[in-house]
Amino acid sequence: MSHRYREGRNLYRDPQHAKIAGVCAGLADFFGVETWIVRLLVISGLIFTSVITLTAYLAAWLLLDKKPVTLGSPAEGEMGEVRMKSRSWQAGVTPLQALGRIAQELDALEPRVQRIEKLVTSKTFALQREFNKL
């Protein structure tokens, strides 16, 4: 089972970078955050809502496919380097550069948000919503 979050990203377990089953490593890769952050959230979840978190973790362990190893992929030693370079704060990027990247991503999203806002505030949308209520 694989899910799409962004174009080209699939949700998998990542046993290659796992502590237990690779669920946290897979989630971290999917959302583009550090693995330790996801692990910290899971541990916090286990402390405060243990049954729900444990059930979700076990379900993810059983339902998610292992991350496929592609032909021509970098060797294990190089894999860590490739993975680290995708994280701004590990690639030696200054905070100002990281902020610039985020600003560029937000600027790219701005036209889409404007189109959505224009649609939602239009009279056509309000009329369509009233028809749907009938």
Rank of each mutant, 00 (worst) to 15 (best):
T124F: 10
A98H: 01
A126S: 09
V120D: 02
R6G: 07
R39A: 15
R9H: 13
G100A: 13
S44E: 11
D65R: 07
F125W: 14
K66H: 04
K66S: 15
A56L: 05
Y57S: 10
V120R: 08
E81W: 02
A126L: 05
L11C: 05
L71D: 15
R115Y: 01
K85V: 02
G8H: 03
E105P: 01
A126W: 02
K19C: 12
L11S: 05
T124A: 14
R87S: 14
S122Q: 04
A91S: 09
N10F: 13
Q104D: 08
V93D: 08
R13S: 07
N132C: 15
V120T: 02
V113D: 04
M84L: 15
L99C: 09
K123E: 11
R129L: 15
V69S: 10
F30A: 04
L46P: 00
R9E: 13
F31R: 00
V38W: 01
L11W: 01
Y12D: 09
L40T: 15
K123P: 01
L106E: 04
I47G: 01
W61F: 07
D65G: 09
K123Q: 14
A28P: 00
P95G: 06
H17T: 13
Q16D: 13
G22Q: 02
T121C: 04
A21I: 02
T49V: 07
M79H: 06
P95K: 11
H17C: 11
S88M: 12
I43S: 10
S73Q: 15
F131I: 08
R87Y: 14
V82E: 06
I116N: 04
Y5S: 09
A18R: 02
E105L: 13
G45A: 04
G77A: 03
R6Y: 03
D14P: 01
L46R: 11
R87E: 09
K19P: 00
R129S: 10
V82C: 05
A98S: 11
A108G: 07
R13K: 11
R39S: 13
V42D: 00
G45W: 02
E117F: 07
P68V: 03
E130I: 00
Q97T: 03
I20Y: 09
G77W: 00
G8I: 08
S122H: 01
T35E: 12
K133R: 12
K19M: 15
T70F: 06
W36Q: 12
P95Y: 09
R87G: 01
S44G: 09
R83L: 15
I47V: 11
K118Q: 09
Q16F: 01
L63M: 08
G8K: 02
A25T: 04
K67P: 00
V69G: 05
A98G: 10
H3W: 03
G8E: 04
L127D: 13
I43F: 05
S86A: 12
T49D: 10
T70N: 08
E76F: 03
F48R: 06
R4W: 12
A108V: 10
L99G: 04
S122G: 06
K85D: 15
A59Q: 06
S50T: 13
A98F: 00
G22W: 00
L46C: 04
S122A: 07
S86K: 10
L96V: 09
L41S: 09
P15Q: 07
R13V: 07
F48P: 00
V23C: 04
Q114K: 14
C24W: 00
L11G: 05
M1K: 11
C24R: 08
A103T: 06
S122R: 05
T53C: 14
L27M: 14
V38Y: 03
P74I: 07
A28H: 04
